[in-house]
Structure formats: C-alpha cells, structure tokens
C-alpha cells in the first residue's frame, strides 16, 4: 500500500507544473486574444516550456511578445531567435520606436524614466496595438514584496494600472476572467515558484537557457556598488571616463537591460552549480537590478503605472 502511494505522489516541481499548466489553459480557454510576454530570461523560458506542455501535441494557441528595449545582451537576442525558430512559435517583437529614435537612455534620463518609456510604455503600446486582453508574465511572488500580494489574475484598467487595494479575491483554483471593455488582465502562472524551483525545473526538463547565466571572464565596472558588464560596441555599455575596468569571473542571476543589470562573481559553469548557489544565496536575485533600488516601494509604484 505504502509503496503504491509513494509512486502516486507528486514532488514539488510536478505540483507547481500542474498548477501553472492549469492557469495557462484557463486563460487560453476564457480570453479572446491572449499573449505570452517573453523576455528571454530563465522565468520566461520555464513559462514557455509549460505552455508548450499545456497544449502538446498542438501548437501554442497564442503568440509570444518580446518588449525589446534595444539594450538587452547580444547573447539574449541570439538565443531568442534560435529558440523561436526551433519550436515554431509566433513571436511579436515590440519596441517603443519613438523613444528609441529620441535616444532614450538610462544615463541621460535616469533608470526610472528609461524603464517607464521603453519597458512599461513599450508593453502598454504593444498590448494595445494588437488588442490583447490577457498577457502572461513570468513574475513570481517571492521576487519582491508587492508581488507577494498580487493575484494570479491581475486586473488592469485601461491604462494598464494595478490597484493593490482593489483586487478581486482569488479562491481555490477558480479564476474570475470577466472583464469590461478596455480592461485587461496580467496573468502570473509562476506566482508560487521560487528561484530555486525555477532552476531545479530547468534541470529536470533540460530547458535551454541563455549562456550568460553561467560564469565566464567578463569586463565589468563598479557603479553604485553594482558590477555592470561592459560591451564596447555601444557607447551606453562602454566604460565611462575615469572608470576602472576590471576583468572578473562573473555570471548573471537575472537578466535585464545591459546598462542596468549587475553581474555576480561566480565560477559556476553548470546547472547543478547554479542550483547550489541559489540555495546558498543570502540576497534576492533582484539585488543587482538597478530598477528596484529606487525606494522601499519602488516595484509597487511601477506596477501602479502599468509595469509587470
């Protein structure tokens, strides 16, 4: 009896997987025009893999959208294009062309304004342009304290804004998909996953990831205590005058825009090493994301403006 039961048990990854697939299928069934936000990072990679499992052997019933700021790592673009080709999904690449033509950058305008224009602005315009009524995002509640209070189905008004005081109760696995004209929802199928869960699942399912999650020798400069990577092909990722360029063995725990994403020192070159490092980490994976360092309620403020 007990032997049979052991075989019938699901471990934490299979429980999380089942919950996420249930959410993804609900959205596909109940919304007219969903889209999956794909940002090339590890969470997006897991979310996309779960979506493929959810509808296998059929193809994804919705497109993917990458809100591209133009400042991502070169390795991210290469990875994205190869992966999309190999799985045969439909990918929309949306950019805030106007802001990019006007040279929006974090140095002249500051990280907050740059993010607002290229990420939040790009996202809202992209959703509106295609009339998407539901957008999947790979955010997890563990990442940040305001995310810990956000629902799996996060209702946004016409401006894409989140109102933390006006959230619908969410009970059992019953999600309320009713929205009014102009409203949309953001859906977070990975809400209950932690960073370690993500890495363990990537290992278990052999999901491909961008190679810069692994350590390599890299030129970096120290800016406000954050180790920023250098790429001399663009003025925005080159060292500034007077900055000392160091060569360090580093990797990235989370991926964003190159000028605003810090590296961590590491010698880890395989998935087991990453899992070990994540388990031992005493700092959250967003410690090196310049966007979060603004104030105690930085993320909550951005979400209220329409950010993921």
């Amino acid at each position: 009896m007990s032997i049979v039961k052991e075989e019938l048990k699901l471990n934490h990854l299979r429980q999380l997987e089942a919950e996420s697939i249930h959410i993804i299928r609900e959205v596909a069934a109940e919304f007219k025009n969903p889209v999956m936000l794909y940002s090339v990072g590890k969470d997006s990679s897991v979310m996309l893999h779960l979506a493929r499992k959810a509808f296998y052997p059929a193809v994804l019933p919705f497109p993917l959208m990458h809100v591209d700021t133009g400042y991502k790592f070169p390795e991210m673009y290469t990875f994205r294009d190869e992966l999309i080709k190999s799985i045969g999904a439909k990918l929309i690449i949306h950019k805030n062309e106007e802001a990019m033509a006007n040279d929006m950058n974090p140095f002249k305008y500051g990280t907050d304004k740059c993010c607002a224009a290229l990420k939040t602005g790009g996202l809202l315009a992209g959703l509106e342009k295609h009339g998407f009524d539901a957008a999947f995002g790979g955010a997890r509640r563990e990442e940040e304290k305001s995310r810990a209070k956000e629902r799996v189905y996060s209702i946004r008004d016409e401006f894409g804004q989140w109102d933390p005081k006006n959230q619908r109760p969410e009970l059992w696995n019953l999600y309320n998909s009713e929205i009014n004209e102009g409203e949309s929802i953001r859906v977070f199928p990975l809400s209950n996953w932690t960073e370690v869960d993500i890495w363990e699942y990537i290992k278990a399912e052999e999901i491909p990831i961008v190679p810069i999650y692994y350590a390599q020798k890299r030129e970096v400069v120290m800016r406000n205590g954050v180790m920023i990577p250098i790429d001399r092909s663009s003025p925005y990722t080159s060292p500034k005058e007077g900055e000392e360029v160091l060569i360090k063995n580093t990797r990235f725990r989370s991926l964003g825009c190159m000028p605003c994403t810090g590296a961590v020192e590491s010698d880890v070159t395989d998935i087991d090493g990453i899992i070990e490092e994540s388990k031992l980490a005493r700092k959250s994976e967003r410690e090196n994301r310049v966007i979060d360092l603004g104030s105690d309620s930085s993320m909550e403020d951005k979400k209220k403006e329409g950010y993921f």
Binding site: S146, R147, A148, K149, P164, K165, N192, S297
Partner: peptide, 21 residues
C-alpha cells in the same frame, strides 16, 4: 507587510504569500 499602506499603518490588509523550504 508588502504594501506601502500596510507598512505605514503597521497592519496587514491583504493576503500575502510567503515561501520557504
């Protein structure tokens, strides 16, 4: 206490989800 209003008022308003292993 995740929300700014909660931290200011020192109360828990909403459901917050926490994780540990």
């Amino acid at each position: 206490d995740g929300l700014a209003a909660e931290r200011e008022q020192g109360i828990t308003i909403d459901v917050a989800y926490r994780y540990f292993n």
